[in-house]
Nucleic acid binder design. Sequence first.
DNA 1: GACATAGGATAACGATCGCTATCTTGTCAA
DNA 2: TTGACAAGATAGCGATCGTTATCCTATGTC
Lengths: 196, 196
Amino acid sequence: MSTKKEQTRERMRDAASRSFRSHGYAGVGVDAIAKAAGVTSGAFYAHFGSKDGAFRDALEQGLDEVIGAIPQYQSEHGADWVRAFADYYLGKAHRDDLACGCAMTTLSPEVARSGPDVKALFETKMKKIAGLVADGLPGGDEEQRLSRAWSMLGILIGGLTLVRSMKSNRLAEQIAKSIRRGAVDAAASLRAGEDD
Amino acid sequence: MSTKKEQTRERMRDAASRSFRSHGYAGVGVDAIAKAAGVTSGAFYAHFGSKDGAFRDALEQGLDEVIGAIPQYQSEHGADWVRAFADYYLGKAHRDDLACGCAMTTLSPEVARSGPDVKALFETKMKKIAGLVADGLPGGDEEQRLSRAWSMLGILIGGLTLVRSMKSNRLAEQIAKSIRRGAVDAAASLRAGEDD
DNA sequence: GACATAGGATAACGATCGCTATCTTGTCAA
DNA sequence: TTGACAAGATAGCGATCGTTATCCTATGTC
């Protein structure tokens, strides 16, 4: 129906998503988010109801992006998809762009401080993501693959946070290399004795 | 000299450290930190100069705690120290206590948003930590051990953030188990074919 | 061409933000 | 006992916080 309204809503959702990732939940105000979307706080509250509501919306959208991206990497890169994904995840472009960065990494620390509703949403989406990852992993039974999927996600999230916190680009690159290798190893069936 | 002053300073440092870990840098105000230490903002600024200064102080103290803890785990648990450390790191007590949680996990997302000075401090301390971890790892040359150390730190940091963001305790426990195994594997010399 | 509707702007609320200037109070030396 | 000093309290700065109530205005209908 109203294309204009949906366009505005999309701009606001994007602005909220980018702002929360860049500055954290408490690090940005409603006025600033609205301004970034080219509207005022009145429009913000008409659409989202509250700052919390906007965060929930941004979180859901951000994790849905991941849910969409995983199968795409799997079908595009085949058995080597984990390496390709880790390359992107720890690459300089993703490192340097907080605003467009993966929601798992930028938003999860905020979720850890949030209430049960936000955590429930995060949990649902992350279970989906871990399941998709596990589906693309070789060897072992389903439980083993899921376990490796959580490990891979964990090391990517922690690794990205780590490299983003370094001052020296050279050190960041060195750590990124280590994390990439760790992620690929975590995803592979270790006990099968695979090597690179 | 003045024991009273140092006691007050210590209380304020602790309050700042706990507050920043619990609520993030932007999530807590100077007045609240001062109040938690039993003083007012006047005393806060007399000691720290600025909110940034207090964060830097809390960050340094928090990472120094880790620097002290790693060798202790190594000497207490011998070759099995990584498993013991991971057990603590992902255990329920550490999961549920944001305020007393490891600074690497709670503060690094804030560092990623900070200026070069804070990043430089974080980098220096993390290099020290990774070096200590690497020293306690078996097999391989120094570069390989350091690489595994970064992987182990990454998976613990990301894993802890992940489990803290779950609503269900059962799922959190399941993920923690996966991360524990991943951390031990990341620390071990994979290519040597070690198993548990 | 008058009118209803809704998307969005505006203004303002009390509270809190980081920070500073000034004042009070407790302590110790002389 | 008095005077000096410093630790900390108090009060207040302008700005921004999240939120609400009210107003404007563009659009589409009859």
